[in-house]
Design a protein around this nucleic acid. Structure first.
Length: 612
DNA sequence: GAAACCATGATAACTCGT
DNA sequence: ACGAGTTATCATGGTTTC
């Protein structure tokens, strides 16, 4: 469909026309060095535009055009000045998370007077903020190393102001009440955060409590309320398919719904931050898990968020009705990755792997900045997939751009940007948009560089495209560190390239025994290589087929190890993923139905451990 | 209507053992 | 040189949500 637009013939541009002369010219080093538009990076463009006078300045408009709210742009620019576009962009990117979250809260009608928005609005009015000259750290933000400080910069801004207010410093409870919070809320926040906590943290806590309460109510309302679908066209997935496989297995299923009553739309959270992400301490710290779901063993299940209708409802129904935690990894790294996680892990005191990974394209891939066109406004990548754009596509893009004298027209821009987003291309030369290299994907996905080295290029892309984003998963698993200081026994299903193992290792959680179930020999080799290279002390046992994980074997392992502390895995998404044109058959598809083996194994483990 | 999406399969090109 | 197996390359929509 996307490509058809390039053949419509309605435009003067013929995307498929080969022009060898132009290609030759562009490929020559001299022509590349002659580029007059080398200051193509967004921030460079903005930096140049910022020198112009007038209000609102071009830089303000440019950031607004990038999608940032005007109030936020003007606030940040008033903070940082117009001369440091990098810092402005970084701050906006991070702050937008907070802002959009706050904005989304407006959806909950009973917190219409949400205080965080008041805080946001108040910021530009405050005159006693530290000047840019007094904040050298903000002036020279190093995109390579300072990312982790972004949000704390904002927090510290609040804190600085707080300390200027002696009354607040003396009695934060009074300050909170003055801000409109109830005495109960203020008291609870102080009890939870401590009396010395900065005001911003206290506000955050109260906001989080609001969110928790609102989200619970809203989620209950949204998840499974039935409505009549408006579309006439029936999904090929939603009707007439039952979980015959499960029923045949005889496994006890906590099934409350059929497909017929779960075909309503799943409302994914926006922003997709689950129970909270780093830099935004808006966490739901308590949730009521069903008794039978409470660990140990802890379990952690993952799959794509954007499934055909009804899939997550079915998954949830087989996993103790625990609501999925939907998180987009773009809050952790430079690429989007919208995933749902169902787990019974505690939510309190999560922490991310340090240092926090780069979260923008320029920070992750600084060499691309040199070639980045000003009109490509992407600051993060789309989801890492299992295959990459073709070399011919890169050629088509280059030819199209070469034909333009100076900045391309809107039609060309639209085509190029569309393809860049679709295929996650980055700028690696003049008019050259190319796919990411495997080692770049390893960086973005949180794996050691060369983690997948030694296998074919296709296998590397496939493995990484199917993998956990390590930082995202690690954040959720981090609570295990205090629970199991001596290490854990892990049953890792559908291990892939070992995302769970890498996450635990990077968290500093020792693995005593790992049963790793993975069909692909290539992936098993990658895990084994990593296991040896990182000098793991524990035992790693490979199982090639999930069907080999029988009750008897589970019983043997449990008797031998004393039980599994964590059952973790993301079952195949092949038949769920939006990229699948041919066999997106839903949870009953050839590959994705292996989810039921996850359920089977988890139930067996719990049963054996419970009886012990 | 725009945007996004842990993909699949056909075929060409390549590798390697005989 | 041959052939089997492996790897690289490319084109291919549709569902879902906002």
């Amino acid at each position: 469909m996307d490509d058809s637009s390039s053949h419509d013939g309605s435009d003067s541009i013929d995307w498929n026309t080969e022009d060898e002369l132009e290609i030759t010219n562009i490929l020559s080093p001299s022509s590349a060095s002659m580029s007059t538009t080398t200051n193509a990076a967004v921030t460079t463009e903005l930096r140049e535009s910022s020198s112009s006078s007038g209000y609102p300045s071009k830089i303000v408009n440019d950031f607004i055009k990038m999608g940032f709210p005007e109030v936020m742009v003007t606030k940040v620019i008033s903070e940082l000045g117009e001369n440091n576009a990098d810092a402005i962009l970084d701050t906006l990117l991070t702050y937008s998370v907070s802002f959009s979250y706050a904005f989304s809260l407006c959806l909950f009608d009973y917190i219409h007077d949400y205080k965080a928005l008041q805080i946001v609005d108040e910021i530009p009015q405050q005159e006693n903020r530290p000047s840019q000259e007094n904040r050298p750290n903000d002036q020279n933000i190093n995109p390579q190393s300072n990312f982790e400080n972004e949000f704390s910069d904002f927090d510290s801004d609040f804190s600085d102001e707080d300390t200027d207010e002696s009354s607040e410093k003396d009695d934060p409870e009074v300050s909170l009440i003055d801000m409109g919070y109830s005495p109960e809320e203020a008291s609870a926040a102080l009890k939870r955060c401590g009396k010395d906590a900065p005001l911003s943290e206290l506000v955050d806590f109260i906001s989080a409590a609001h969110v928790s309460k609102a989200a619970d109510a809203e989620m209950d309302k949204l998840y499974f309320t039935s409505h009549i679908p408006k579309k006439d066209k029936k999904s090929k997935l939603q009707k007439g398919k039952n979980c015959s496989k499960i029923e045949n297995t005889g496994i006890k299923i906590n099934r409350k719904r059929s497909y017929d009553d779960v075909d309503d739309a799943l409302h994914l959270p926006n922003p997709m931050i689950g129970f909270g992400v780093p830099r935004f301490s808006c966490q739901v710290v308590n949730r009521d898990l069903p008794k039978e779901a409470i660990g140990p063993p802890y379990f952690f299940y993952e799959n794509v968020a954007l499934t055909p209708k009804g899939v997550w409802a079915t998954i949830q129904s087989h996993l103790y009705e625990i609501k999925p935690e939907f998180v987009d990894s773009n809050f952790f790294c430079a690429a989007a990755r919208k995933r749902g996680y169902i787990h019974n892990l505690p939510l309190e005191n999560r922490f991310p792997i340090q240092p926090l990974p780069p979260r923008t394209i320029f920070e992750a891939l600084p060499e691309t900045q040199k070639w980045w066109p000003s009109w490509d406004e992407r600051v993060q990548l789309n989801c890492v997939l299992t295959c990459i754009g073709s070399a011919q596509l890169t050629d088509r893009i280059r030819i199209a751009l070469d034909k333009c004298d100076g900045e391309p027209n809107l039609h060309v821009k639209k085509y190029v940007i569309g393809q860049c987003k679709k295929w996650n291309l980055v700028w690696t030369g003049k008019n050259r948009a190319a796919p990411l290299e495997p080692n770049e994907l390893e960086l973005i996905m949180g794996y050691p560089i060369n983690h997948t080295r030694g296998v074919s290029r296709s296998e590397r892309y496939k493995g990484l495209g199917n993998a956990f984003q390590v930082d995202t998963v690690a954040y959720q698993l981090s609570v295990l560190k205090d629970l199991y200081p001596e290490g854990i026994n892990v049953l890792s299903l559908f291990s892939g390239i070992g995302g769970a193992e890498v996450a635990l290792h990077r968290l500093g959680i020792p693995m005593k025994n790992v049963i790793s179930v993975e069909k692909s020999e290539v992936c098993r080799g990658i895990i084994q290589g990593w296991w040896e290279q990182t000098n793991q002390k524990g035992n790693l046992i490979h199982i090639s087929d999930v069907q080999e994980v029988t009750d008897r074997k589970l019983e043997g392992w449990i008797r031998s190890f004393g039980g599994f502390d964590l059952v973790i895995g993301g079952s195949p998404c092949n038949n769920l993923a939006g990229g699948n044109r041919r066999t997106r058959d839903g949870l009953e598809g050839e590959h994705s139905s292996l989810f039921y083996d996850y359920v089977r194994i988890l139930n067996t483990v719990k049963c054996i451990m419970g009886s012990n």
